[in-house]
């Protein structure tokens, strides 16, 4: 065994001894370690909950933007629909197709009356304009 091998053997022995010594003790006393672990868990939980809240916040913001965009679309479509069904437009369309028609009387118009969700709708005829009466339930 030359001097190099003797040195290596001694170093291994020293390391083994030191490891044995380290394994048999703690850097922190157990109660303090428990507090550190608990604090770490709480910190992780806090970060996780915080991230979750951020996610929900982002979702709420996105839904707010979606709702706003849909409201805008609804408004614009309503405007187009009102224009399309205005009397002059209808008359222009009739003229364009060469149709001769007259406006209906109120009792010739059927209204589909919207009811709250889950309740049966109603088909009502306007024997009279909405000017004079309410839709019978």
């Amino acid at each position: 065994m030359d001097s190099w091998e003797v040195g290596l053997a001694m170093a291994r022995r020293k390391t083994r001894k030191r490891n044995t010594k380290m394994d048999s003790s703690y850097l922190l006393p157990p109660p303090a370690l428990a507090v550190v672990i608990l604090a770490s868990i709480m910190a992780l939980a806090y970060i996780s909950v915080g991230e979750r809240c951020e996610d929900l916040g982002r979702e709420v913001s996105r839904l707010e933007r979606d709702l706003d965009a849909k409201r805008k679309v609804l408004g614009n479509e309503q405007s187009k629909w009102q224009r399309l069904k205005s009397k002059p437009q209808v008359e222009l369309a009739l003229k364009a197709f060469g149709l001769e028609m007259d406006w209906p009387q109120q009792n010739q118009v059927l209204y589909l009356v919207r009811r709250p969700w889950g309740q049966a709708g109603q088909l009502a005829t306007a024997n009279q304009s909405a000017t004079w009466g309410q839709v019978a339930n």
Partner: peptide, 8 residues
């Protein structure tokens, strides 16, 4: 007044 003629 209006009259309901049928139920859906």
């Amino acid at each position: 007044p209006y009259q309901v003629v049928s139920r859906m």
